[in-house]
């Protein structure tokens, strides 16, 4: 099984860590804030409507 062969360990680890870091960066900077923004807007709309 290639994943258990020692000379591929660092290669696997490097690719996994770089992919994870890139995904976390892109998702937290570009996609997750949109959900927060939507919740904030909904709160504003609700409060303004209640007044």
């Amino acid at each position: 099984m290639p994943q258990l062969i020692p000379f591929y360990f660092i290669n696997q680890l490097s690719f996994s860590f770089l992919t994870l870091l890139a995904l976390i960066y892109i998702i937290s900077k570009y996609f997750l804030p949109l959900f927060t923004f939507q919740q904030v807007i909904r709160m504003y709309i609700t409060k303004l409507n209640n007044k």
Binding site: S28, K29, F31
Partner: peptide, 12 residues
């Protein structure tokens, strides 16, 4: 921007 989306100042 990334694929047309703006960038937010999230701490990473």
């Amino acid at each position: 921007s990334f694929l047309g989306l703006r960038k937010w100042p999230t701490p990473v």
